[in-house]
Write a protein that binds this DNA or RNA. Structure first.
Lengths: 245, 245
DNA sequence: TAATGAAACTGGTAGTGACCACATGACCAG
DNA sequence: CTGGTCATGTGGTCACTACCAGTTTCATTA
């Protein structure tokens, strides 16, 4: 057995167990579609209660690593790329997991009062200031998207150009500096045609087809945090999602 | 209190409770962002154990109806449209929840051996036959998408043109007739331009921009069931998803 | 008056024990 | 050989209990 559970660790046991099991799955210790030890066996193996074991397995089932069959057992999902599969990802994460080097050019970063539609989406009072960040997103150095974020930040919460240039990922700053954990988002996608200005920035002909994404990001407490609009080059970007029932 | 829990019902108690709470939220009995009764209060109110209550609340939290704050309580999510929000939806469900009447023209329905790429996506052996269904999808009578499905069905599982015309939704037939429950899907979206043939079927000019979606659908046991390719009219369709961490 | 700290709440984690529902394979009767 | 039955294994549901970890309230203290 690879690792054991440390009952004195501050990390919950069910979480420790989930990590151990996930590792075995990713390492290929267990074949896809093969049964993992039964809940009663795991009880003995790791000396923890079935309650805790079921909580760990629940987590992995939700994440798509395992599936259960009543009366038969719990089995390893055969999804090939399950490891790197996140659902709600930032632009940078998204590119990184495809093996593309993310990059950015920050065109502007300033506090402004946005148009009413955006204020409404962010559930803010009229004339409230938000932080607008305009960036050209790069994949392996080539422009692939035009991104405009509008952030609903509280007093005292600030993001500087330097931080953004350094970290690269807005989501990282939100989480680590501001303790805002992105937890859900509503996104819409549609097709549009590039205006001359957009075309110039993306280095494509005017009128070329673009993929337009609009996303509202919510924090743990379901408060809207960011409204972001991204224009992707139609010829260089493919959007992927994993959907669940 | 609206409804109570029937301990003799075959439906699990946690599920009954989740339904009761969901109803209160959707009815607006509880204000968004207000706290629902604490777990210990619900224990008394419904005369069930905290284990069961937490399981019901877990379900609603995952579905986005509620959120928890450690030490403070459990609160109603303020998402306006949460009720109709599903993640993995069929074409018909998708349109219906936007108030558009779905329709279809079935162009063909036959067993064929698809190209290797599709067999591989469906994890089938070479030269395996699958059921291909070509449909023009309509919204309020107007063509909005061109859909080609490839279904990996077992011996004896069959779908007829009549059934499909009658029920309208492929997912309904999968679930109710074949007992295949769609549970997860991987989807990619990109932009393309209409070929003359596609343009004719969709009643748009050749070269008009389209939204191309490719989806692999998985059943409960993570077996691939359907590979489906949909071409949406760029000017009439907007794709929406809810993403989760 | 302002600081503090204890009490009383909240959800989070964990163990134990029980019984139900479903799947499977061994066994037996026809 | 066929079909039923039963034991045993699996996950699914549920109750009760205990304690931990944050938050809020409010009486007490400096």
């Amino acid at each position: 057995m690879s690792r054991m559970i440390d009952p004195y660790d501050a990390i919950p046991k069910y979480y420790q167990l989930a990590a151990i099991l996930r590792e075995k799955i990713e390492n290929g210790d267990w074949e896809p579609r093969s049964a993992i030890p039964s809940e009663r066996q795991l009880e003995v193996l790791y000396d923890i209660s079935r309650t805790t074991i079921r909580e760990a397995i629940d987590q992995l089932v939700r994440q798509g690593y395992l599936y259960r069959e009543h009366g038969r057992g719990t089995f390893v999902s055969p999804q090939k790329l399950q490891k790197a599969m996140l659902d709600l990802t930032s632009f940078s994460e998204d590119l990184l997991r495809r093996g593309i080097q993310p990059g950015q050019i920050i065109r502007s970063l300033e506090w402004i009062v946005p148009i009413p539609k955006i204020l409404q989406r962010l559930e803010l009072a009229p004339a409230t200031k938000v932080l607008r960040i305009e960036r050209i997103r790069l994949g392996d150095g080539v422009p692939i998207g035009l991104q405009t974020s509008f952030l609903a930040l509280k007093e005292g919460q600030e993001i500087t150009r330097e931080e953004l240039e350094e970290r690269g990922s807005l989501y990282t700053i939100l989480q680590e500096k501001l303790r805002i954990i992105p937890s859900e988002a509503d996104e819409t996608l549609e097709v549009t045609l590039a205006t001359p200005e957009e075309a110039a920035l993306l280095q494509i002909p005017a009128g070329a087809p673009l993929l337009l994404s609009e996303r509202v990001l919510f924090a743990q407490d379901r408060r809207p945090v960011e409204y972001v609009k991204i224009l992707y080059r139609g010829d260089r970007y493919r959007y992927t999602v994993r959907l669940r029932r």
